[in-house]
Amino acid sequence: MDTLSNYLLISSILFSLGLFGVVTRRNGVAVLMGVELILNAANLNFLAFARFGGMNMSGQVYALFVIVLAAAEAAVALAIIINIFNNFNTINIDDVSELKQ
C-alpha cells in the first residue's frame, strides 16, 4: 500500500471523476462539486510527493494554500450561481449564455 504509485493512481482517478462531473453536469452547483474533486486530487498529489520526496514540508504548505483558494472559490462561485438563479430563474449553465437578458 505504501507506494507513491498507489497514491498517484488514486488521485488521478479522483481527478478524472471530477473532470467527468465538470464536462457532463449541467447544473452549476454540480459543476462546482466536480471542481472540488479536482482540487482534492491535486492536494493528494502534493501530499504524496511531499511524503515520498523525503518528507518535504513545502508540499503540505502548498496543499494548505490550495485549501484556502478552494474556500474562496466556493464562496464566490456560489454567490455568482445564486445571482444567476435570481436573474434567469435557472442554473442550467447551457441556458445561461447571455450577459444581459
Partner: peptide, 25 residues
C-alpha cells in the same frame, strides 16, 4: 500520508465550510 494538520484543516474547511455552502446553494 502523515499530514495530520492538513487532515484536520480538510475536515474543518471542506466538511464544515464548503459542503455547507454547497448545500445552501
Amino acid at each position: 500520508l502523515w499530514a495530520d494538520f492538513l487532515a484536520v484543516v480538510q475536515v474543518v474547511v471542506y466538511v464544515g465550510g464548503i459542503l455547507v455552502l454547497i448545500i445552501f446553494g
